[in-house]
Simulated scan of single mutants.
Amino acid sequence: MAVSLATLVEEADRYLNAGKIQDYCPNGLQVEGRPQVGRIVTGVTASQALVDAAIEARADLLLVHHGYFWKGENPCITGMKQRRLKALLKHDISLLAYHLPLDVHPEVGNNVQLARQLHIEVEGLLDPANPRVVGLLGALAEPMRARAFAAWVGQVLGREPLLVDTDRLVQRIGWCTGGGQGYIDQAAAAGVDLYLTGEASEQTFHSARENGVAFIAAGHHATERYGVQALGDYLARRFAVEHLFIDCPNPV
């Protein structure tokens, strides 16, 4: 079966409340392809490798978390950007991208989906007073040492994480997928035992040590693989179309 591109985009925008979330890039349809969608390919980032894989898979629509046209980037369609867009347009493939709307969604969001993968019970927002902080707070059913939890994270995500403070006993956790290392101070203020995100900055080590919080950087890409899959599954069920997730490995 197939659904009109306009209908699918309208539903995705509505479901994610995309129009009401301020972001660093346009959310929704970024490149318009053929008017009917029968096969969706999802992935984390609309890299050339993922675009090529979507072409090989005969996708009508490519749905990603990291799309194009970020604030502050050079707007000229040259080089890498030209090659990516040329490939999409040549093969009449639409590009649909959701950044922050896909991080914060309570059902298919990256943060909620990562919690489900790691068996963390969600309790609420990392910083309820500041909606710009998109991380969450939660807890493990049973406490474990930070070293053991890091091993579990590595097993689930298929990537050895960076760990600071290996011996701390962990039950209460704060997390934000992707590049959320800047929220470690909010996590410490919320009283967590451990803060987990995708990346680390030089100062993150000192914040963790001096605030008495264990810290895990599990990979930007690795922590953000699950939201886009869940959204793709939702749209596939909603419109009875095909959905294929393609993971283009990224060690960062």
Rank of each mutant, 00 (worst) to 15 (best):
H221S: 13
L196P: 00
I216S: 10
A222T: 01
L194N: 01
A200K: 14
T204C: 09
T197H: 06
E224Y: 07
G182E: 06
A230R: 05
A190Q: 09
G219D: 01
A222I: 01
T223Q: 00
N211T: 13
S201L: 10
Q229S: 07
R209E: 14
Q186D: 15
I216G: 10
I216W: 13
T197E: 07
Y183R: 01
A230K: 08
Q186S: 15
G198L: 11
A208Y: 09
D233P: 00
L194D: 05
G191L: 14
Q181M: 10
E210N: 11
Q229R: 08
A222G: 03
S201K: 10
V213E: 12
V213S: 04
A230C: 11
E224H: 02
D233A: 14
A187Q: 06
Y183E: 07
D185W: 07
V192G: 04
Q181T: 09
T197A: 09
V228D: 09
R225P: 02
F215K: 05
Q186P: 07
Q186W: 12
L231D: 02
V228I: 15
G227H: 08
A200E: 12
D193V: 06
Q203D: 04
I216T: 13
L196A: 00
E202D: 07
Q186H: 15
H220F: 01
G180N: 00
G180P: 00
L196R: 00
E202K: 03
H221L: 13
Q203H: 08
Y195R: 01
T223Y: 03
R225T: 03
D185F: 10
H221Y: 15
Q229K: 09
G212L: 04
G212M: 08
R209T: 15
E210A: 08
V192S: 09
A200R: 15
A214H: 11
